[in-house]
């Protein structure tokens, strides 16, 4: 009841995070990159030196310079400002999509893994059906059919990612369904739903963390990809995918910076999320904390 044990536990957690980061410098880099991306997403518009929409025909297609760090595009807009501002939109799409597919996928997968039987059969076939399509083509189809809006990109990305969560959740719950602590929880008066929600699911989280992190990278790529082929976010909105698509036309004529910098931002984001996964698992698995 005294605050001391809680304090010591929190300190233990911080020590643990410091240890995990120190042990694996790449995780530390990924965390730093992730923190940078989040900051840019939050404060991007305030940080941007120019208005990302303001065109200036006199200074079109200038290479990177002290004035324009990433150069200017064909309408004279500042590429650096546009890359910064685009972070928020891209991150928002991927976070929303991943959150949606995590919640639905984990619920479906946990139920299938815990109860098995017909629930497992039905959800299993449903997930297989989604997996049967080439995923990007499915996303294209969904966006094309439902309309070209940011929400629809989120839904499409969420649907194509859902099977991965359902499968991981099913497997992780299934191996723990008859574990000693689950039996003990039943004896302690927990109903099946309580056993699943309070005892089994939290233990299935660490591997799902990895999945979430990997998926964030895919989701960003997917959103950018949809925009690249003209579905989803439309010009003149600042978005990495569109910027790469538009910039691609100028690469042949030597104006490489139009496509290069948004592409670099995209790559850094995907890189950060992919590496983050391993670090998150190390941090959230209590057994690693010895």
């Amino acid at each position: 009841m005294s605050p001391t044990p809680i304090d010591s536990r929190q300190r233990g957690f911080l020590d643990h995070v410091v240890y995990v980061l120190g042990e694996n410098p790449i995780t530390a880099i990924a965390f730093a990159l992730f923190a940078l991306i989040v900051c840019v997403a939050l404060f991007g518009p305030a940080l941007a030196p120019y208005d990302p929409m303001e065109s200036n025909a006199a200074r079109a297609l200038e290479p990177p310079s002290a004035d324009h760090w990433f150069g200017t595009d064909n309408l004279g807009r500042d590429v650096f400002s546009r890359v910064l501002v685009a972070t928020r939109l891209d991150l928002m799409i991927s976070v929303a999509a991943v959150a949606l597919s995590f919640v639905i996928g984990a619920a479906i997968g946990s139920a299938a893994g815990y109860w098995g039987g017909w629930i497992d059969a039905v959800t299993g076939r449903f997930v297989d059906t989604i997996m049967a399509f080439p995923l990007f083509v499915l996303a294209m189809g969904i966006v094309a059919a439902m309309g070209n809006t940011v929400e629809n990109i989120i839904y499409a990305t969420a649907i194509i990612n859902l099977p991965f969560y359902a499968r991981v959740a099913r497997a992780e719950v299934r191996i723990r369904r008859d574990a000693g602590f689950a039996q003990a929880a039943r004896l302690s008066g927990n109903t099946d739903l309580q056993v699943l929600a309070f005892h089994i699911f939290p233990n299935a989280l660490p591997p799902m963390m990895v999945q979430i992190s990997l998926n964030m990278g895919w989701a960003i790529l997917n959103a950018a990809g949809l925009s690249f082929i003209g579905l989803g976010v439309r010009p003149p909105t600042a978005e990495w995918g569109i910027m790469v698509a538009e910039g691609a036309n100028f690469v042949v004529s030597g104006e490489w910076w139009l496509a290069f910098f948004p592409g670099l931002a995209l790559m850094c984001a995907v890189f950060a999320f992919n590496l983050l996964g391993d670090g998150l698992r190390d941090i959230f698995d209590p057994r690693q904390r010895t």
Partner: peptide, 30 residues
């Protein structure tokens, strides 16, 4: 009225629960 002590103490305690949480669970529920 019917309870059990399991063979493998490690496996039978939720790895994410402290000893206090593990012992309070049946008190709160039963």
């Amino acid at each position: 009225s019917l309870q059990m002590v399991f063979q493998d103490a490690t496996d039978s305690i939720n790895p994410r629960f402290t000893a206090r949480q593990a012992i309070s669970d049946p008190i709160r529920r039963l």
